[in-house]
Design a protein around this nucleic acid. Structure first.
Lengths: 137, 137
DNA sequence: GCCGATACCGAAAAATTATTCGGTACCTGA
DNA sequence: TCAGGTACCGAATAATTTTTCGGTATCGGC
């Protein structure tokens, strides 16, 4: 018999950070806005690797968490603009660092991914009593 | 009719970074190892908010990506030690920053979470033509 | 009233991740 | 050979996130 329901520890900073901007496309959205894309239609055009719906949804979560703010311009044509709040701005440098790390190591990651496609799981965790990883003594 | 299968852009540094250490418990594991927990049993004792199986699995992925290395000490009792590789070490400062950001803003996040529990979704994204967020002009 | 432009949303389905449960393997000493 | 300690794994299931598809709503003209 199962029980339990997630249990997130909101006193762990990393979990908090991930919750706020750790979703699949949120970093991209924050980045795009920080680079000047303001309107939904612009964002949809910039980020083509996912659907408009996804962007809308994650955008509204970002608004909820106060990372971006939304301005509605009455008039014609209907126009909405998003921009980073101070909280959102404070995320940009972190994103830049994550990005830098990823760029530096992407070739490695690609190579590893390619490998595990061929050789099944490669079982990097199993103790193999012959030919193991690094057996001491 | 659906089609498609994920499409990840491994040229985006952020996506690469998230792929390598963005899972729910990987940051905790990396952190725990960096603070000196070496053996699986120690990790299981340190990280109590998830099961041993999860730790084992994510640990072996970390090994696959070369973030941590594994040493098997033959002898009694059976003993295994994990430690961070240089690649793993390079992640620690990033984690520290994410953590710092999260700690700084956790109260805010908690408050927002509490709110959306009460007031349903709060619809932070919907255009409400009366009482909207920030209507210009 | 209907159209095109812009922005948004609901619900179902698919993909992905996280968890649980129930084992297997190795070693040593009783 | 069996128990006790340590480390690991496979397969089912649950939970969560991402995607798709098919609408709705406002505005200003035609």
């Amino acid at each position: 018999m199962y029980e339990r329901k997630i249990k997130e520890d909101l006193d762990c900073g990393i979990i908090v950070a991930m919750k706020v901007f750790g979703a699949k496309w949120k970093p991209c959205i924050i980045d795009a806005i920080s680079r000047g894309a303001k309107r939904p239609s612009e964002l949809h055009r910039e980020i083509t690797t996912t659907s408009a719906r996804v962007i809308d949804m994650q955008l509204s979560e970002l608004v909820t968490y106060g990372v971006v703010s939304k301005k509605i311009h009455q008039g014609f044509p209907l126009c909405v603009e998003y921009s980073l709040t101070p909280l959102g701005e404070s995320i940009v440098p972190l994103l830049a660092q994550l990005n830098a790390w990823g760029l530096k190591n992407k070739e490695l990651v690609k190579k590893i991914d390619a490998n595990s496609d061929n050789n099944e799981v490669l079982s990097a965790g199993k103790i193999k009593w012959n030919a193991a990883s690094t057996i001491c003594q």
